[in-house]
């Protein structure tokens, strides 16, 4: 009986430092299955840093924009939706003898 040849795939490796942390891309590796990719990922890329969870995704399952699309992420001024656009409120509240509330001071 002929052995079935396993195909190697490129896996992209992501790791979360803690349960609340985002998964951050580390690097890629070659493996013949997802479970193999997982055990290889740990010693290849997480020998020193702290990790809580590691993800592997086959590169051909990832869809991405290319360099020619990069400029569509450029934005014109959006200060109307940024806190910097509302700095003047600090001065206003001071005139009313109050500190402005922030999400930190409220929670």
């Amino acid at each position: 009986m002929a052995e079935e040849r396993l195909e190697y795939h490129i896996y992209e490796v992501f790791a979360q430092e803690s349960q609340m942390a985002p998964a951050v891309h580390q690097f890629s590796l070659l493996a013949s299955s997802p479970d193999m990719a997982l055990i290889l990922a740990k010693e290849n890329f997480l020998r020193r840093q702290k990790a809580w969870s590691v993800w592997v995704v086959r590169r051909d399952h990832i869809h991405r924009t290319g360099p020619e699309e990069a400029e569509m992420f450029d934005r014109l001024d959006k200060s109307y939706r940024e806190t910097e656009g509302y700095r003047y409120l600090k001065e206003k509240w001071r005139r009313y003898k109050h500190e402005p509330l922030t999400t930190q001071t409220m929670t």
Partner: peptide
């Protein structure tokens, strides 16, 4: 969500 709320309270105050 909370990170975005900073803008929301300022928007309402404004």
């Amino acid at each position: 969500i909370i990170a975005e709320e900073s803008f929301h309270i300022q928007h309402g105050e404004s």
